[in-house]
C-alpha cells in the first residue's frame, strides 16, 4: 500500500528569465513501512521534494497524495493539522527549541495538539527511553551532544505517532560515528516501529541503511536502487553510482 504518491510534481522558483525549475514532473511512490533515501548532487531538488511531501511548500503543478489524501491544494490550517498528526520531521540542525528541556522538546507536537503537558511528556519520554535518553530528559539542548540532540529530534518526530517521518540530512551536522548511529536509528524506526521514512542525504554510507535509494538530478528522478540489507559493500556500490550520476 502506498503512503506517498506524487504525479508530475513540478516546482519552479521565481518567474520569467530568472525562473529555476527545482522539480520537473517527478513521479514517486513510497510504500508503508518503507525506508527510502533520496540522493543526488547539490541543487538537484532533494530538499524541495521533501518540503513538498511534508506540506511545507506548495507545488507549482502536479499532485501529492499522502495516505490517500491529496494535499496540493489544502489550506494552511488543514496542512498544519496534517503535519501535526501524520508527519514527523527531522532536520540537519536538530532545531530544538533552546529554552525547552529534552522531554519538553520531544513532547511539542502532542502538546501543540492539545494534550495536557504532563501526559504529553509521559508519552514522549517513552520514545526518549527507547533511544537511550531516559536520564537526559530534563537536560536543555545546549547540555546535549549533537548525536543526543538529533535523537531527541527523532523522538519528537515520533511522539505524535505519525505514519510518515521525513528527514532532511539528519546526519549532516554530526561526526561519522554519531551519523551512523542515527542512520541505524532511522532504520529501526521503519523496521521495528513500522513507520515510513523518507530521508534526504548525500552520504552513501548513511543511504546504505535504507531499503531503496532514489537518485535525483536536475529535478528529475534518474535512477533507483533497491538494497537487501545494510552493509559496507552496499555503501561502496551506492558511492559508485552517485559518482557515475555526476556529483
Amino acid at each position: 500500500m502506498s503512503i506517498i504518491s506524487t504525479q508530475n510534481l513540478t516546482k519552479i522558483f521565481g518567474s520569467g528569465p530568472t525562473a529555476v525549475t527545482a522539480l520537473d514532473h517527478v513521479n514517486l511512490t513510497v510504500n508503508a513501512g518503507e525506508f527510502v533515501s533520496i540522493m543526488g548532487p547539490s541543487g538537484c531538488g532533494k530538499s524541495t521534494l521533501l518540503h513538498l511531501i511534508g506540506g511545507l511548500d506548495r507545488p507549482t503543478s502536479g499532485s501529492i497524495t499522502l495516505d490517500g489524501i491529496s494535499i496540493a491544494n489544502m489550506n494552511d490550517d488543514r496542512l498544519t493539522e496534517l503535519r501535526r498528526r501524520k508527519i514527523g520531521f527531522v532536520f540537519q540542525f536538530f532545531n530544538l527549541i533552546p529554552v525547552l528541556t529534552a522531554v519538553e522538546n520531544a513532547a511539542l507536537p502532542i502538546t501543540l495538539d492539545g494534550v495536557k503537558p504532563l501526559s504529553a511528556q509521559k508519552q514522549a519520554s517513552q520514545w526518549l527511553a527507547r533511544f537511550g535518553l531516559a536520564d537526559r530528559s530534563s537536560s536543555r539542548p545546549d547540555q546535549l551532544s549533537g548525536g543526543q540532540q538529533q535523537r531527541v529530534a527523532i523522538a519528537r518526530a515520533l511522539a505524535a505517532e505519525p505514519t510518515l517521518i521525513l528527514a532532511d540530512e539528519p546526519t549532516g551536522n554530526l561526526d561519522t560515528r554519531s551519523g551512523e548511529e542515527i542512520a541505524r536509528l532511522m532504520r529501526e524506526v521503519a523496521k521495528k516501529y513500522g513507520r515510513t521514512v523518507v530521508m534526504v542525504t548525500h552520504d552513501p554510507r548513511i543511504a546504505a541503511y535504507s531499503d531503496r535509494i532514489v537518485f535525483l538530478k536536475d529535478g528529475k528522478i534518474v535512477d533507483e536502487t533497491t538494497l537487501s540489507r545494510p552493509n559496507s559493500e552496499n555503501a561502496a556500490a551506492v558511492a559508485q553510482k552517485i559518482h557515475s550520476i555526476g556529483d
Partner: peptide, 13 residues
C-alpha cells in the same frame, strides 16, 4: 527558526 519549527510541527498561526 524556532517559530518555523513550531509551525512545521503543527502549531497554528
Amino acid at each position: 527558526r524556532d517559530i518555523g519549527m513550531l509551525r512545521t510541527l503543527g502549531a497554528t498561526r
